[in-house]
Design a protein around this nucleic acid. Structure first.
Lengths: 239, 239
DNA sequence: CGGCAATTTGAAGGCAGTCAATTAAAGTGG
DNA sequence: CCACTTTAATTGACTGCCTTCAAATTGCCG
């Protein structure tokens, strides 16, 4: 069992629920909640299932399936995507360690799949919702999380209207930023996943990265390892 | 003051808050709520402002502006969009009468603008959130509404990865369906808005509609009035 | 009827896609 | 540890869809 390289130090952010519990506790700004941090932890643990391990490309939740669970990524990368009859595919989002997702109703017809080998935690949806009804801190947290994801998705739909260079530059700088601006960026997912996420072919993705390298903006250390030499120049391509 | 043609009968769905109040009441499935329907109505009315009228292309809320309000469309169509330095524009979503929106945090940098002459109701964001903390029915409603919008936005980002014919066919059939499948479809917004929403130019949009007309799938009655003759064929173009 | 705005149509060019071949990297077994 | 196989990524040549720029047409409103 080989765990693929993942998002550096952030990979171990959420080995359990403690990150979420603290986030809920921190986001509580409203009166009326009647549970302390320990209570939240115990309540969440009670409706937790897993974490469960999935190999790359395994389907975690099928499209159209009854959406009984909310997911938390413990390690690795998860993709939310749709495969069409002609074999092409669109990737809506990637989820990294610590991300809570799976709010889309069942009708949304998106498939949740492992983009790398991953560990995923399951939370019973109905139980979580009824918990949110009793403790407004959890409700606020869920709303804030969903709003954040809505914002990201809006940005992504805007990105899809741009040219290839802008899309790739945005993806690389976003990823680099999320990783804490390390010296070198390890792409945790396949180029095919990135291309489907950006609405491009792997050939165009590859050629675009090559053009960035020829401009001196970045350097390839290997297929999946890049060094961003001039991030400022890359950012100028965005918009 | 000329009110432009809008979404037929649905234009008068929400002249006030009654639609939302009922939706909140209906979506209540959790214990712990301590307000009846009349209480909700009064609470919402208290933090309501407007409705206010905006002419087409007027900015309702500027990008980056402190997001103090949540919006409800009373009549007309609102667009959520971003204008780039080079003058191009991307439209993330259209909001129709009855839609509640404006959840995106301030940082999201989207501009809320009138796509037609519109009437918009304002709700104080903080007051609504604290109300949601006290009454879980309102919290659930807000979460459900945000989730619904997230799903729509995901579908839209997928759409942007498709070819022009699929995008236009999807837009037309979706609109036709939302309008209750009437005999003829009145496009309430300009072609430029639709093109920016679909990530196309107005020329490509026009040419695509022309090709649909030549295939006998639809017929133009005027620039903004279409008759979908073979909706099934149009749907086949969607993937 | 006249003038402006919106849409349609036409012709030419560019960016990204497709198909095919090569190279690099990772996994496998001797 | 190295040869072999398989998978992933790069590169090249060509095609096609969509854009761009320009002109004509339609529709709206005074």
């Amino acid at each position: 069992m080989t765990i693929r390289p993942d998002f550096g130090t952030s990979a171990v952010i959420a080995p359990d629920l403690s990150g979420i519990v603290q986030a809920i506790h921190a986001s509580a700004r409203c009166a009326g909640s009647f549970a302390d941090e320990e209570t939240i932890r115990r309540a969440l643990s009670a409706l937790q299932r897993g974490p469960i391990h999935f190999h790359r490309d395994k389907v975690i939740a099928c499209e159209g399936e009854a959406a009984d669970y909310i997911f938390v990524v413990v390690s690795g990368v998860v993709r939310s995507c749709k495969t069409y009859q002609n074999g092409s595919r669109g990737v809506v989002a990637f989820y990294l360690p610590g991300d809570l997702f799976g709010w889309d109703d069942a009708k949304c017809s998106l498939s949740i799949e492992a983009a790398t080998d991953v560990m995923v935690l399951f939370l019973k949806r109905r139980a979580l919702l009824s918990l949110a009804a009793r403790d407004s801190r959890i409700g606020s947290y869920l709303l804030a999380q969903t709003t954040k994801e809505l914002g990201r998705t809006q940005q992504h739909s805007l990105l899809m209207g741009q040219c290839a260079k802008s899309r790739v530059a945005t993806f690389l700088t976003d990823l680099w930023t999320r990783l804490g601006k390390p010296a070198s960026v390890d792409l945790p997912m396949l180029h095919q996943d990135i291309a489907d996420y950006l609405g491009l072919t792997i050939e165009t993705l590859s050629r675009t990265i090559t053009s960035f390298e020829q401009s001196g903006m970045l350097k390839r250390q290997s297929y999946r390892k890049l060094v961003l030499r001039k991030p400022a120049l890359l950012s100028q391509l965005i918009d």
